[in-house]
Amino acid sequence: MQTLSDRQHSTRGTVWPLLAGAAAGIGGLGAVLALTGSASPLRAPFTLFFLLAAPAAAIAAVLTGPDPLSRWVIAVAGAIAVDVLVAQSMLALRLWSARGGIAVVAGLSAVLFLYATLRRRREHTAARSRIL
């Protein structure tokens, strides 16, 4: 028989994927609203969320050593650093535009996610070959 604490524990594990999906949706919507130049009142907060969440999630995916809290603190600090360095570089090269900055941050985040995915796949393949 399932007790109340068992049900709470089982639902706690299903909340994280839901929150991750909602965060990805909000971030993606923020990027789309900013890239299309929409006049929506949600444009600014969703875009700011994208500019912090996308690089932070990508950096956290690359980091494997630290414990989860340290990983997220490092990832948020890294996301702020990525945003500042992208803006500074684009301003120095006289290429600054809000759309361009968002596109560059999205591209860097995608590259970091791709690197993390390829590294995990390579580690999984190497571990599998050791077993066989």
Rank of each mutant, 00 (worst) to 15 (best):
P66R: 01
D67F: 07
D67M: 09
P68K: 07
P68A: 07
L69C: 02
L69T: 12
S70N: 08
R71W: 01
W72T: 06
W72C: 03
W72E: 01
V73E: 00
V73H: 01
V73T: 04
I74S: 03
I74W: 09
I74K: 00
A75Y: 08
A75Q: 03
V76Y: 06
V76C: 02
V76P: 02
G78I: 01
A79V: 10
A79I: 12
I80H: 01
I80K: 04
V82D: 04
V82I: 15
D83K: 06
D83N: 14
D83H: 09
V84I: 08
V84C: 02
V84P: 01
L85M: 14
L85P: 01
V86H: 07
A87C: 05
A87S: 08
Q88I: 04
Q88C: 00
S89G: 15
S89E: 07
M90R: 10
L91A: 10
L91W: 12
L93T: 09
L93P: 02
L93S: 05
L95Y: 08
W96A: 05
S97Q: 13
S97E: 10
A98Q: 13
A98T: 05
A98K: 09
A98H: 09
G100F: 11
G100R: 07
G100Y: 12
G101H: 15
G101M: 15
G101C: 14
